[in-house]
Design a protein around this nucleic acid. Sequence first.
DNA 1: CCGAGAATGAGAATCGATTATCATTCTCGC
DNA 2: GCGAGAATGATAATCGATTCTCATTCTCGG
Lengths: 124, 124
Amino acid sequence: MPSAVPHRDAVLGLIRSLGRPVSADEIRDALRETGIGIATVYRIVNKAVEEGDLAKVELPGAPARFEPADLPHHHHFECDACKRVYDVPGCAKGVTGLAPEGFAVESHEIILRGTCRECSGVAV
Amino acid sequence: MPSAVPHRDAVLGLIRSLGRPVSADEIRDALRETGIGIATVYRIVNKAVEEGDLAKVELPGAPARFEPADLPHHHHFECDACKRVYDVPGCAKGVTGLAPEGFAVESHEIILRGTCRECSGVAV
DNA sequence: CCGAGAATGAGAATCGATTATCATTCTCGC
DNA sequence: GCGAGAATGATAATCGATTCTCATTCTCGG
């Protein structure tokens, strides 16, 4: 076990390799064999967010997810079946133009919901 | 005080008159003088949601809000300053087209954030 | 090999939102 | 005016997510 901070590397590596925002629970489960505790997962991702390495993705009614902070502008897709969240590249035109007169839009978020590719192909 | 269910009417009336999604706390505060309790507010809005009279609006990191269920398709604006949530009419084109191949989009949500009209006009 | 300081894990504690409990109050038909 | 049943409010309980605590373990320079 080389690395100076093995858990941190394992967590950030996992997040980068999955290519979608993952929750603390998902991280803990994926690294189950290392015996990592949920407190450590939170410690690592919180610090990484502070340091600008990770971005926190919050969706209604779901635990926070984490993804690399250097991704280009994108949005999210939440699967109704498996509850996983995926990145969707790009953005819709005219989004910020929707706001009524007098409202200053500083950021926006688009959340798509439905069935992901994996769940679509699987019979019940 | 006529009505058979005064609190229900007061709550639904308030929601309709404000024209924006309101949380249980906001409802209780607005109806403070009637002495309504938070439990009653939740009982009323939950039943109204079940009965199809209200829709629940959930935004990340905020308590659920409620608005009339019969509004046309629209989205929401959350003010960073006052935390109030407003309806924004209309929708952006091409939203559902963002999803990658194989993902079936069944609904979507757009959340704008920034400063609302009221907060924009007010100095710190 | 040794000790200081950082990191860890298990579980308790906390937090905000929501729901359950239960004694009291109110409504209405009679 | 009376009683059954619904509604209410205060508060305790719950829930899931997250953070805190603390004893233990690990890392490393010396």
